[in-house]
Design a protein around this nucleic acid. Sequence first.
DNA 1: GTAGAATCTGACATCAGTGTCAAGTTCAAG
DNA 2: CTTGAACTTGACACTGATGTCAGATTCTAC
Lengths: 120, 120
Amino acid sequence: MRIGELARRTGVSERSLRYYEQQGLLVSDRSPGGQREYADRAVDRVILIQELFAAGLHSKKIAELLPCMRDPDGGPNERATPQLVTDLTAERDRIDRMIADLATSRAVLDDVITTAAQEL
Amino acid sequence: MRIGELARRTGVSERSLRYYEQQGLLVSDRSPGGQREYADRAVDRVILIQELFAAGLHSKKIAELLPCMRDPDGGPNERATPQLVTDLTAERDRIDRMIADLATSRAVLDDVITTAAQEL
DNA sequence: GTAGAATCTGACATCAGTGTCAAGTTCAAG
DNA sequence: CTTGAACTTGACACTGATGTCAGATTCTAC
């Protein structure tokens, strides 16, 4: 598929897809004329990238992480370096803290909402 | 207390504290010479503001929300508008989704970490 | 009164992902 | 062919909280 369809199927803008490629997160074949051609797998990959972005990982870290993931196609995957494992563990712990903080904030909001709803 | 101490006690930079005031999130008395003077309660308020920022709320929304919160001092608090309740409910739902997404990302990271750790 | 620390305002920089626009090229269908 | 939609690269703008710096002022302690 070409970039427009991938954008439609993932809900990610064409601009962002080109950015992902520039950052080494996404690869594409090119048509004879130079237009990007994506495999079906790209859909899942883009969604995964978005999830990692949403979790607060930066593109550089994602670029290191992606090749170490189990490939659904069974393709060869790189071996994670001890350094990367350390980094990812730190990220995971950061996410844990973030989830805990969000739960706190959620409780705060809920309290305001409940109080306000009673007053209405 | 003055701004330096508040910064120390909250872990928030002086720059940010002035920004919060500019955005209407934080109030301060002023010394005769014009320096900010904070009540002890400011500490809790700043921490709360940080939590809400961390939850992804923007300063404008926080500025609307804060006056509607139950005041620990029992001070008069404004009544939340139906519009605000709607907005806050949307924020809460957004936070719920964010927590769920983070849990997904956490699982992804955990998988990579576990796999990598086995290989080492 | 004076030195040095703390604070003031205002301005500009930063981050990283994304929006947007321009000018040119390629693709698909008539 | 031709036409219009889709795509290309490159550049610049934006967001919004925060960092940082400069020059002036205030506070505190001696």
